[in-house]
Write a protein that binds this DNA or RNA. Structure first.
Lengths: 218, 218
DNA sequence: GTCTATAGACTGATAGAC
DNA sequence: GTCTATCAGTCTATAGAC
């Protein structure tokens, strides 16, 4: 209370939290160590004292942020106790809450994924396939065989689900500008999507896909 | 032919094209004027001779790229001679071709939109509304009144269309890694989406939305 | 128009006092 | 652990020769 400046947590934690904010909003190259020093309220030299280098600090932040983003995505697929549609509803519900709390996360992760795709495997440990993938593939196949869902490539579904959930946060400044909404109004629309996206996905999966070169006469 | 180096077009055009490639793949901060000099094969000093400053060159590239991205989006809405569904089909078809030719465009534009949203209005001249918006709003309202489409907020539809079309290009490294596809195979899936996205959108728009707090018994 | 050389400013990192 | 002072390297931009 009587200290020069009031902070939460240790100096190291303050730097890390400030670095997360600055790195995720400006990226590695546009961020100066002086920005992080100012944002955290600590002396410039302490950043190197605690984290050795700007690059090292960035990698720590980056791995944590990418994992936060991806674990929720793979979490969509990993629970073996629920049906495909149920795990979709639960996952999207939690995911939209997480995105409202971290609106800058998707664009940061997408940049990292595009600029340094090798880090996905090397630093984050995000390999080609995992147990969750195999399970969801089995579940998917069974439903397709039973005729409960349309025979489309799972990547199309995954793309659509993640796109409809995540993209409105990436393009928020564009879509909000276009519709003249406030941040609060926009977030309320995102909350509506918790119910709408699972409904749309279910609709897509259960409506017959038109044959190529045939008019759609349903 | 007998010149020291063989180039296409004028020095100025070479610099500009190289700058487009480097800026769109690395962003403003991570790009050095030396990178552009090397990429274009011209002397470092000529960049300032032709474009005065790195920032000025960036702004020229940025405005062109954002317009390339946005004109196709607003072009979805602007043709008064076609139905809603038809203009959707045509626009998505052309847009996916453009994205396959410019896969790095969406992430570049999304970064600009997130980091400098004021440039949308100040430099690109992308205002809140235009004639096309008013027309599509009228068309939308008529179809809703006639019961031809579900009464959902147009922003949900726009978000979904743009998301399903654009997001697979933003998340390409992630989704490709996950599915173990080659670039060629991935692009073929994008071409499939030319037919699939309009079909999905039509399905979404014509399937009744479940009432809140009521179980979906269709 | 094109080149070399360099000015002038900024950045990441550290030495050394406290 | 925290601070000040500063170094060494890099960057954009330009002066001036050709």
């Amino acid at each position: 209370m009587a200290a020069k400046k009031q902070h939460n947590g240790s100096t190291e934690a303050q730097i890390k939290e400030a670095a997360r904010r600055v790195f995720t909003s400006k990226g590695f190259a546009a961020t100066r160590t002086r920005d992080i020093a100012e944002e955290s309220g600590v002396n410039l030299a302490l950043i190197n004292y605690y984290f050795r280098s700007k690059e090292n600090l960035y990698n720590i932040i980056m791995v944590e942020q990418v994992q936060l983003f991806l674990h929720s995505v793979t979490g969509i697929l990993n629970d073996p106790t629920t049906t495909l549609f149920t795990k979709l509803e639960i996952a999207i519900d939690h995911y939209i809450d997480m995105l409202i709390a971290n609106p800058g996360l998707p664009i940061f992760v997408m940049n990292e994924v595009n600029n340094n795709p090798e880090n996905l495997v090397d630093k984050v440990g995000f390999g080609n396939h995992n147990a969750g993938d195999l399970f969801i593939a089995k579940q998917w196949l069974e439903m397709t065989m039973a005729g409960e869902i349309q025979p489309i490539h799972p990547l199309h579904l995954i793309s659509n689900v993640v796109a409809m959930t995540v993209f409105p946060f990436i393009a928020a400044p564009l879509l909000r500008n276009r519709s003249g909404m406030s941040v609060k109004e926009y977030n309320e629309m995102m909350l509506q999507r918790k119910k709408l996206i699972p409904h749309w996905v279910k609709t897509i999966l259960t409506t017959p896909v038109p044959e190529p070169n045939k008019p759609d006469r349903s």
